[in-house]
Amino acid sequence: MAKEMMKSVALSILVLNLCMYIIVCATAGWALNKAIDHEIITGLGIPLPNPYWAVYFPMGNAATGFFIIFALIAGVVGGASCLSGLHYLRSRTENGLASAASAALTAWGLTLLAMGLAWKEVDLHGRNSRLKTVESFVIILSVTQLLYVAALIQSHR
């Protein structure tokens, strides 16, 4: 009885996390696309400006570039861990638990890294509403991903 309840809790958190990771990927992808479209273009023989970054972000602050890259990585790995979790909750094998738990822990670690950069971006100010959305979702995902890992492990006991 308790196993089935934990399985339904894990599945609910998993679906929530999957939706949130998709939103993070879409919004961070928009920011990266905007940065690529507004990249500094120079002619042959013209040097790049001194404070040039490989990816120039026309919005946000100094932490935006790092945050967006790590949010995209965390979003993709988190989405993949959700798919692995869905497969495990459907099949319920020993090997499935190991792969789902390791993928979920990896995604949680990357989400924590992105969350630290989100806090730095919040501290520096000067960002738009879409960046605030990505920051909020990454911070919320750092908590819900941990809850998912705990529910996943408890659903197997």
Rank of each mutant, 00 (worst) to 15 (best):
M1P: 15
A2G: 10
A2T: 09
K7S: 10
S8G: 01
V9G: 05
L11R: 13
S12F: 05
S12K: 07
I13A: 10
L16W: 09
M20C: 12
I22K: 04
A26H: 07
A28T: 08
G29H: 08
G29L: 08
G29N: 05
W30A: 11
W30P: 00
A31T: 10
K34Y: 05
K34P: 00
K34S: 12
E39Q: 15
I41V: 15
T42F: 00
T42H: 00
G43T: 02
G43V: 01
G43L: 02
G45E: 01
P47C: 02
P49C: 06
P49T: 04
N50C: 03
Y52V: 05
Y52P: 00
A54I: 12
V55F: 14
F57L: 11
M59E: 15
A62E: 14
A62Y: 08
A63C: 03
A63E: 10
T64S: 12
T64M: 09
I68M: 13
F70S: 14
L72T: 11
I73F: 09
A74V: 06
V77P: 01
S81V: 04
S81G: 05
C82L: 02
G85T: 01
G85L: 02
L86Y: 09
H87K: 12
H87S: 12
H87N: 13
Y88A: 03
L89C: 04
R90F: 14
R92Y: 07
T93F: 06
T93Q: 10
N95I: 00
L97M: 11
L97Y: 05
L97N: 01
A98H: 09
S99D: 13
A100W: 09
S102H: 07
A103V: 02
A103M: 13
A103C: 13
A104K: 06
L105C: 09
L105R: 11
T106H: 00
T106R: 01
W108A: 13
G109S: 14
L110A: 08
L110V: 11
L112E: 11
L112W: 07
L113F: 14
L113Q: 08
M115L: 10
G116P: 05
L117E: 09
D123A: 14
D123F: 13
G126H: 14
S129G: 06
T133E: 11
E135K: 00
E135M: 10
F137C: 08
F137G: 01
V138D: 03
I139P: 04
I140N: 00
T144R: 05
L146T: 12
L146Y: 08
V149R: 02
V149G: 03
Q154C: 09
H156A: 15
R157W: 09
R157N: 09
